[in-house]
């Protein structure tokens, strides 16, 4: 079993008629994802991709096509509203790719998620894929292969890099998830680790972190206490100078916290096998699998 999405997942795309929405939904459809509808205010009644109905509101889409996943591909100025609309409609899984959502909005969204029926993945990430079953996001179709490795990454391109290495070595993946590069995101490493730990298909977990914040340290703590599967880790940003924002708003070392070293130490102490370079992720997984 994969985590959070599967072959039967029914997906709507908020912002489906926009450029990004059309492009990404086409790629997901090509992968076999069941896209049952789209939402764009003012475009209700239209049909895209041959047979995908467009609705004006998420509530209308829910009443008509019963989605259990919403894929949000709308620009930052409208993304907060789109996420809150999906939470309001009690959609179990919301995947938001949008880069540039103001952090105050994300703080409010985080609070709205508490006690809601929704899990949010992202924003500012590539989404997730259960190879061979379903894709919600922009992870390239051709680099994935079905198998038993669960991968979670803050960065999108590093997620691609890890998937590619594993597939090249013949190791398939159960689910690959990008949680997003922003300082405040909906789903944490720990949330994903817990799900992989409970997922019978997943045998090895790969965690790709980066400098900034303490999400990796918290994840290390969780691994030490709860995870009974082998974990391989890589942390980007060992050579990043303090105080520089490295593209991801979340990737910044402040004072002595958030350094790669502190994260690597925490993960190693928790028994995680660390890949020193990103190019070593595949071979370390191979080593762990013996």
């Amino acid at each position: 079993m994969s985590i959070w999405i599967e072959q039967t997942s029914r997906v709507i795309v908020q912002g489906i008629t926009g450029h990004a929405g059309m492009m990404h939904s086409a790629s997901c459809l090509a992968y076999g994802t069941k896209i049952v509808g789209g939402v764009t205010p003012g475009k209700g009644g239209e049909v895209v991709h041959g047979n995908v109905p467009v609705f004006n509101t998420v509530a209308e889409a829910c009443a008509a096509v019963y989605p259990d996943v919403s894929f949000i591909a709308v620009p930052a100025p409208h993304a907060t509203d789109a996420i809150l609309e999906a939470i309001d409609a009690e959609i179990p899984l919301v995947v938001c790719l949008t880069e540039g959502i103001p952090v105050h909005d994300m703080l409010r969204i985080r609070r709205c998620l508490v006690g809601s029926k929704t899990r949010l993945i992202g924003p500012n990430g590539p989404g997730l894929i259960a190879p061979g079953k379903c894709k919600v996001g922009i992870i390239p179709n051709e680099i994935c292969k079905e198998g038993s490795i669960g991968i979670v990454s803050r960065s999108g391109t590093l997620l691609f890099e890890a998937i590619y290495q594993l597939t090249s070595l013949g190791y398939g993946q159960s689910t690959c998830i990008g949680i997003g590069g922003d300082p405040v995101v909906g789903t944490s490493f720990t949330d994903v680790l817990r799900a992989f730990n409970d997922d019978p298909q997943t045998e090895v977990i790969v965690l790709i972190g980066e400098i900034g914040g303490n999400a990796e340290e918290v994840a290390a703590d969780f691994i030490r206490q709860h995870v009974h599967k082998p974990v391989v880790g890589y942390i980007a940003g060992r050579r990043t100078p303090e105080g520089k924002r490295m593209g991801h708003a979340g990737a910044m070392i402040a004072g002595n916290t958030g350094t790669a070293l502190s994260k690597i130490n925490a993960l190693q102490t928790a028994g995680v096998e660390i890949a020193q370079n990103v190019t070593d992720v595949g071979s370390i997984v191979a080593k762990v699998l013996g």
């Binding site: 790709i208 940003g237 991801h248 370079n277």
Partner: peptide, 21 residues
């Protein structure tokens, strides 16, 4: 690079192999 994470990993790898960005 395309992506902040990939960029940081690139800097690390450059450094590990004797280069400097």
């Amino acid at each position: 690079a395309n992506g902040a994470g990939l960029g940081m990993a690139t800097l690390d790898l450059l450094d590990a192999l004797g280069g400097k960005a």
